[in-house]
Amino acid sequence: SGTGIVTGSYVAPKTVWLHAMKGKGLEISGTFARRSGATFMDLHFTNRALQVMSDFAIQFNRNSFGLAPAAPLQIPTPLAPNQSTEVSLPLNTIGSVMKMEPLNNLQVAVKNNIDVFYFSVVYPLHILFVEDGKMERQMFLATWKDIPNENEAQFQIRDCPPSADAVSNKLQASNIFTVARRTVEGQDMLYQSLKLTNGIWVLAELRMQPGSPSCTLSLRCRAPEVSQFIFQAYEMVLK
């Protein structure tokens, strides 16, 4: 909008998850969103078959963060040929946990009156960043020191917004909170925290180079295997 006002967590555009060729005429596109403290799978179903579709249901395989449908799939049936419908499926994180490769992989099964269809999607980790992820300053400093240097991972983010305020506002809308901000030798340093739905805290330092669109993200976490995916979430939210 250009107004600098940021509303809500970043939502990626929908992409096709199940092609009609593989779904016997059922095409599903979707994305993930976090709204009002809850996670959703936003889906678009299209019937590209010559027959009516009905009796839809959805199931997830076990996954790294216990994501599971929080309600049955509500599709107004029957779905006539060439008809489309939008559905927002609320999710919770109390399902069975199994570490996936990659960590953010989700295996989905959708059934209708024709067959059962399987597909895999990867979700951006920021849909799991909770609203109370701002760490107290004293706790931040203690935790930062407590996490060993070997657990720190560094990444370059290109195409950052030009001002620290814009960066901070954009990230906060996706539940990445600025705990402190310092300027040293012209470089803006943002100290940030976030918390995942499973209680894992991530501490971050975002260093912005004056006059450069690139910034350096340093992440400290007791579960360093998540760092790569946190970086991807930062990139997605900032771009």
């Binding site: 400093l141 402190a180 310092r182 040293v184």
Partner: peptide, 20 residues
Amino acid sequence: ELDDGLDEAFSRLAESRTNP
């Protein structure tokens, strides 16, 4: 304003990271 020493601690952290 209550000086809890945390402002200074963050400044030291930022400086140590810039000039290790």
